[in-house]
Design a protein around this nucleic acid. Sequence first.
DNA 1: GCGCAATTTTGCAGCGAGTGCAAGAATTGT
DNA 2: ACAATTCTTGCACTCGCTGCAAAATTGCGC
Lengths: 197, 197
Amino acid sequence: MSDEDCGLRERKKRETRLALHRAALDLVEESGFDAVTTDQIAARAGVSSRTLFNYFPNKESAVLGATPADPDEMRALLDARPASEPILRSLRAIVETRLSPTTYDPQLRAQRRRVILSESSLGPALVGNNIRVENILTELVAERLGLDPAESVRPRVTVASALAAVRACIEHQHTGGRGTVEETVDEAFALLEHGFA
Amino acid sequence: MSDEDCGLRERKKRETRLALHRAALDLVEESGFDAVTTDQIAARAGVSSRTLFNYFPNKESAVLGATPADPDEMRALLDARPASEPILRSLRAIVETRLSPTTYDPQLRAQRRRVILSESSLGPALVGNNIRVENILTELVAERLGLDPAESVRPRVTVASALAAVRACIEHQHTGGRGTVEETVDEAFALLEHGFA
DNA sequence: GCGCAATTTTGCAGCGAGTGCAAGAATTGT
DNA sequence: ACAATTCTTGCACTCGCTGCAAAATTGCGC
């Protein structure tokens, strides 16, 4: 996926996109999300402010380097999981992939992770409140469970809870909570799986 | 609470607040959330645009008539629930109270409900993404469970999942899903209680 | 009532996010 | 090298929201 379409045009676009993402991450890490303007990000990336919005729909997405959730891509992710796996576990894997994309170079990934875990303005944009992602996943989960998403809320509630759980764990970090994200996510999904009762 | 402090000043403030809320609801019901500007809301309420933001922190809050989440108030709500009640059930009751405040006159409440269920821009502002509410509830739930919210994620995950579940049910309505909100919320909380496994 | 203090409203000036549009620059295939 | 396509840029603009200081309103002691 990263080597196909190697025209100059496509390569430049990838470079620009990455430059914007890097610039955004750097600036946010330096001064905090709210103190950084989109103009500054564009300037550091060496591109006009208008161009930033050709690549990302908003500031948050630029910082996250968010790729516009593609249904096919997510379907591929889900299909990659064994059919026998409990749906929650598959969901968790998918969400974690979105959280730290494996196509990144490790250093950038680490920085992204650092920023996500320290900037609370980003949580919502990442997993919570991301209606588009929720809708796509709901559709996919319904399919796998053999349910009609218009008939039963179950798929949607499953997805929403999973996303919320991850976001809660990130929030837990923001508020200085104990444990690594991995540990707390473990705990959270155990709760979802076996019930809060 | 609605009769105390009956000075002219306090009464006028309540009137203005209500006027803004009503204006916002009316306009949004007429034209949709995105098509309504804060200036229009203020104008219909007969106050300056600047005044709107003296009463509400943002457009969404004006439409929702959102009262700034008060820790003490929420504690009172929780304390009103029997101590033996499962925490999820208490949470559900609290969230539902926030969803349709009992201090409203029925007609306004109905309108508010209608708007909430038809305007998807509002879901986030109501329950999801409401970090402040989540933090307060997390604290309270931790207390009731006898846990330290910094030690265990459980309280936070419980709260986040409950909020997410309700938001998911509202979203279910938005997307034309079947069933009343009550039914779907029932189903959702049953899942949370007994687990998704 | 009267006048002073506290509070509220308002206008204004301004910032930052985000968009539509049209002109200009770069890249492509031929 | 030329034309078609695509990307970038600048510009003007809307909208949400904020700070500030002046003006209006209300509360209170007399």
